[in-house]
């Protein structure tokens, strides 16, 4: 069985590219049993969302200034 170290790395990669069928299956199986890796996945998605909001806010803050 793959470790959390390994699965979390795949979770990260999965955010930027399509994983192989084998990898996706391994991730899915692992996530069913592992709360922490599941948390890592949703938190990584949250961070992506936050980063976009952050840059939007930065942009409008700067727009208002000028």
């Amino acid at each position: 069985m793959r470790s959390c170290r390994n699965i979390s790395a795949l979770v990260s990669q999965g955010m930027d590219k399509k994983l192989s069928l084998r990898e996706r299956f391994a991730v899915r199986m692992h996530l069913m049993m592992c709360t922490r890796c599941r948390n890592f996945q949703s938190q990584s998605r949250f961070i992506r969302k936050a980063a976009r909001r952050y840059v939007d806010a930065l942009q409008s803050r700067l727009d208002n200034k000028s």
Partner: peptide, 18 residues
């Protein structure tokens, strides 16, 4: 972030209402 077995060292807790 991980211990030698590959498990989380501490690791992601549930976040309340992100």
């Amino acid at each position: 972030y991980f211990i030698s077995s590959g498990h989380w060292n501490g690791g992601p807790k549930a976040w309340a209402d992100p």
